[in-house]
Design a protein around this nucleic acid. Structure first.
Lengths: 197, 197
DNA sequence: ACCTGAACACCGTTCAAGT
DNA sequence: ACCTGAACACCGTTCAAGT
């Protein structure tokens, strides 16, 4: 590699996106990424801040792919739709959970989602602040569920993870599909039950 | 150290608890822990599975210190009390968040908390399954909030984390104390609003 | 049974240097 | 301006050996 076209940030993010598509984003390494780009590890650092920077860009792109729910939906369904879209990404790519928990995500997509939710909620009569609170509550619940879920998938590969008794089985059930829906529906219902606008 | 009394698991966990008390559990290292115990790093591995094993024992002890809410409380307050106790640990020791997300915690204390919640909820008319679902939903929400909170404290130390505009400020507000209460109260209210026992 | 010593197999990232 | 090469500063943990 002497003198080819210079590396770009887009190329780096694209290469990382392919790793995501192959389902191994969590095992992504700066060194491997550099190999795939036929370049030295340190070459990346001219175009990205650090590894987190790459992961954030990938996560943002994956979330953007999910799109937004139909804005004509009633607000409870709209919020539930946002949660489901977020979960789809976090479930498919468990390593992106850490992106959200490591620092507040203020990417274009993250901002667009909040703006869209505010829109639907204010049209339903909420103040901006109340709309923000409701969105935040749903976001928080979803992150929590997916963080628990991601950990269990990672740990379940190794040991047998057998539930010795009914109590252990119950704890294992904290992350079932039905439980996600149950908690989400309860939360959204509760958000509407005491309308402090 | 030739021939002194043999190392015990309790000593290891105690030493780690002191690190927690000093607020630096997250920077705990097997090598440092061994130093404090006047022993070689590898000596620990006869008494504990791995580093996670130590962290789990410490987290369990910290959670046990929180005790349980007054069982005479109405179930919504009881669940909120459990959440607040859990959050106290996760907030004071941000590195313990990973303990809960890495694998399902089925320690004595974790089990006791679920049993206690079931007790209160079944006395209020819930089935065992419904009680479990409600407890799980509150647990999930709390983990999510604390995961977001832990990340922000860690990242806020470095850069200035200034909110450039109103939208960024709103996103930063996802982890305020009031927001924790808001989401928790909404969730608990929602759990009670559609009584499928 | 319990502990030691040395080494493995990795990381992300710095630094100074090359072109 | 952009990339390279070598090294740093760490980890948790394995393995074989000592007593």
């Amino acid at each position: 590699m002497t003198g080819g076209p210079p590396l770009t940030r887009a190329q780096i993010v694209d290469a990382a996106m392919q790793r995501a598509a192959s389902g191994s984003l969590g095992r992504l390494t700066i060194r491997e990424l550099a190999d795939e780009l036929d370049v030295t590890p340190m070459a990346l650092y001219r175009h990205v801040r650090d590894k987190d920077d790459i992961l954030e860009a990938v996560t943002d792109a994956l979330l953007a792919e999910q799109g937004l729910p139909d804005p004509a939906l009633p607000w409870p369904d709209y919020l539930a739709g946002l949660a489901t879209g977020l979960r789809a990404v976090l479930r498919e790519h468990p390593s992106t959970v850490a992106v959200f928990t490591r620092r507040p995500q203020m990417t274009t997509t993250a901002r667009a989602r909040l703006v869209a939710a505010r829109d639907v909620l204010t049209r339903a009569g909420c103040s901006i602040d109340e709309a923000t609170r409701r969105y935040a509550a749903v976001h928080t619940y979803t992150i929590g569920f997916c963080a628990l879920e991601a950990g269990r998938r990672a740990s379940a590969t190794g040991d047998v993870e057998l539930a010795d008794d009914e109590l252990d089985a119950a704890i294992a059930g904290f992350v079932s599909e039905e439980q996600f829906e149950f908690g989400l529906r309860a939360l959204v219902a509760g958000l509407g039950s005491a309308p402090s606008l």
